[in-house]
Design a protein around this nucleic acid. Structure first.
Length: 301
DNA sequence: ACTTTGACCTGTGCGC
DNA sequence: TGCGCACAGGTCAAAG
């Protein structure tokens, strides 16, 4: 699943493929994902031309030239597969109930978890696949976007003028561990379990540190918090630069695999050596809020 | 108001 | 081979 860098990578891919295209047909294979699909979503999208593809937090927002917004969240396991006109004849032969197919071997496409299909005027098809169905699809008018409940409580975008001072204000008085705070989308958006672990390690901050300890008595950010804010930006940018990380069930939208996973310093490295220069610690896995946290207890205080 | 927990789903990999 | 359990990138509602 996609954290901010992976969603941004998908956004870029969808932008390339979709902007200027007109939707000719939408097929829904079930009633919804995490939530029911909105009423008549297929009919409302058919005939719409894509104007732009935006990202807010981990949400993809696809604008049409008629002022509609198609919202798509990938949840833990959602992905889009883009099928070119040349491939469509083979795609149409895929048995959606079968677990595997020859086409699937070529495209990573497997059939029974393909919940939405979008056909475009150039003959291409986009398929949304999501085994766990934690994803979201919604549709609303652009004018209503500010009052969308999924979006309105979201915090700042980390890569758009986010400051340590802003972070300090949001950390005030919080007793929960900093790792938990990083995953809170009201604090900052886009950071998920992997990049929270990575940014804390880069910053030398223990994931269990009570959040408020990163704020000085005068309300200013500590040096550690300023470092953390910068490391969050750096690690997200680095991951975007290599096209997002690749985990078990994530593939970039064009089928190209990202490879930021090769750059992980702590995530998934339990019992491995700490890779920080001069630190001879061993990576540990602990559980916080029912999720794995990876850290080096030697260099993270 | 804040913090923690459970729930939503399916797939995979491991130990027995 | 089969079974049960732990675990997986997210988020929200409910409970404490």
């Amino acid at each position: 699943m996609p954290e901010l860098p992976e969603v941004e990578t998908v956004r870029t891919g969808l932008e390339q493929a979709w902007v200027g295209r007109t939707i000719t047909q939408v097929t829904l294979r079930r009633a919804g994902l995490r939530f029911p699909f909105p009423d008549r979503m297929e009919q409302r999208l058919t005939g719409q031309t894509i104007a732009q593809v935006r990202r807010r937090a981990k949400y993809l927002l696809i604008d049409t030239t008629d002022g509609l917004v198609f919202l798509s969240h990938l949840g833990m396991s959602g992905r889009y597969t883009l099928i070119t006109p040349l491939e469509v004849p083979r795609y149409s032969e895929v048995d959606a109930s079968s677990k595997h197919s020859k086409f699937g071997e070529l495209t990573g496409f497997e059939g029974r978890h393909d919940h939405m299909e979008f056909c475009f005027d150039d003959g291409s098809v986009a398929v949304y696949t999501d085994p766990r169905r934690f994803g979201i699809a919604d549709l609303f008018e652009r004018a209503e976007e500010p009052i969308q409940s999924l979006l309105e409580h979201l915090g700042p975008e980390p890569l758009e003028n986010w400051t340590a001072q802003d972070a300090a204000v949001r950390c005030q008085g919080k007793r929960s561990p900093i790792k938990t705070t990083l995953l809170d989308q009201r604090f900052v958006v886009g950071v998920g379990n992997i990049y929270a672990c990575e940014a804390l390690h880069r910053s030398g901050i223990s994931p269990t540190l009570p959040t408020h300890k990163l704020v000085r008595k005068d309300g200013k950010p500590t040096k550690a918090l300023s470092d953390l804010v910068e490391h969050i930006k750096d690690v997200l940018k680095a991951a975007i630069a290599v096209g997002g990380s690749t985990l078990n069930d994530f593939a970039a939208v064009d089928g190209t695999l990202g490879y930021f996973g090769h750059h992980f310093q702590v995530y998934g490295r339990e019992d491995g050596p700490c890779l920080k220069e001069g630190c001879n610690g061993t990576i540990e896995r602990i559980v916080q809020s029912n999720r794995s946290t990876f850290l080096c207890p030697r260099c993270q205080k």
